[in-house]
Design a binder for these strands. Sequence first.
DNA 1: TGACTTATATCGACCATCTATATATACTTA
DNA 2: TAAGTATATATAGATGGTCGATATAAGTCA
Lengths: 110, 110
Amino acid sequence: MNIDKSLISGSTAMMVLKLLSEKDMYGYEMIEVLRERSQNVFELKAGTLYPLLHGLEGKGMLTSYEKDAGNKIRKYYSITRQGRKLLEEKKGEWEIYSKAVASVLGIVPV
Amino acid sequence: MNIDKSLISGSTAMMVLKLLSEKDMYGYEMIEVLRERSQNVFELKAGTLYPLLHGLEGKGMLTSYEKDAGNKIRKYYSITRQGRKLLEEKKGEWEIYSKAVASVLGIVPV
DNA sequence: TGACTTATATCGACCATCTATATATACTTA
DNA sequence: TAAGTATATATAGATGGTCGATATAAGTCA
């Protein structure tokens, strides 16, 4: 999918938090799930995700732990209560924002 | 309105083009109309708008002319055919993008 | 007179994302 | 078995959109 990259801004953290609100995941898994769930619209790059995860962890939104997966050690991330609170905030903002865009574009709210 | 600034990215050009697709406007007017139409969600800053307008003009998406408004000289912008084409593209991208976000968030498409 | 609004413009800073690069293992296929 | 691809995490540097601060200048209003 060829969406202008500059449109995809700020919402990445929200979507990562959403995924982790459902179950613990490791980084690479998030990239795949995000691609599937968005019907290939979001092709999140590793160079975007890992610094983002580290940042969210540093702010106490996530915690991480290593888990042995057969032959590999994967780094799993878990959302904190604070992270869930942030997710709710971001979701609220997203609704306000997307409705405002629709309003400017003259798209009738369904 | 206190929307996370980082959410508002890339869509500004699209909204400016939309306004100009309806009628010619001067910069300050766009800031006001955008604020009204978005129910105060978008408070576009002059420091964002003017460089954006110059950029779009440089790319041939807009043309400008000066018009005497009583006692002030205002700089009006007019969308070009190319600009209208870009607007249609951006609108299509916006729809794809916002639907993908809704899909990830588990918001049922209405 | 002073504060605020209208109006346009530029500069430096910030931040999210990208590309490129690095490292290491596992699987596939010629 | 060698090469290529996928899995998996990570960092550095570049790009680009937006912001705050600042500048200028004219009009409005108390």
